[in-house]
Amino acid sequence: MMNLSLLRQFSRLALRPPSRIPIRIRNITTTPAVQFKTTDQLCAEPMKKKKKIDPQIVKAREERRRKKLEKQIRRLEKNARQLKPIDELEVPLDLLDNFGKRKRPQPKLTAEVIEARALLQKDWARYKREEYISNVAQIDRIMAAQRRALDKLLEESEDLYNEAIMPDLQLIPYEIKGPVATPPIKSYESPDGEYIDVSKKWDN
């Protein structure tokens, strides 16, 4: 194999391509002969004109580029530590300052009021439980009605049943509005008002 590659190196000098030269070398290989052929190397490229630049300018240019990069790196390092604050999560300083001033005097609750409130909480818990139970019962009833309808449909026709139990893809995405607290006023145009955008810009 070694001899062959050497031969290819000198193929440019040869009058005939090397493949045609009968090679009488006994090669001992474990793999079957591979019929790959390498392309001839050119070993040269067309000449380019070289511009002559003042070395001072080149140096200055280099310097500028380096400085620019350094500045960018510095800025990145600085920003890596500093996270973008979320305004809504930060308590404004003026609120923290007069925190005491904003405290509401706690009302003095009488024993009766406390008792009444506790009773109401318990009543409410009971009421919600009943509501929950009735909701579950309703859902059960509606599901049972559907099950019954589907069973009857299966009795009637299996094809229709199979169609009926297919998922309804039109439902996705599902959108539902309301109910609302007061009925909508027809042809009411809501006053938009004016606003000033005070959100800060956080670009680097």
Binding site: A145, Q146, R148, A149, K152, E163, A164, M166, D168, Q170
Partner: peptide, 12 residues
């Protein structure tokens, strides 16, 4: 808007 491909009730 229909809510399902399946019938919800039955009457005969």
């Amino acid at each position: 808007q229909f809510i399902s491909n399946a019938p919800c009730g039955f009457y005969k």
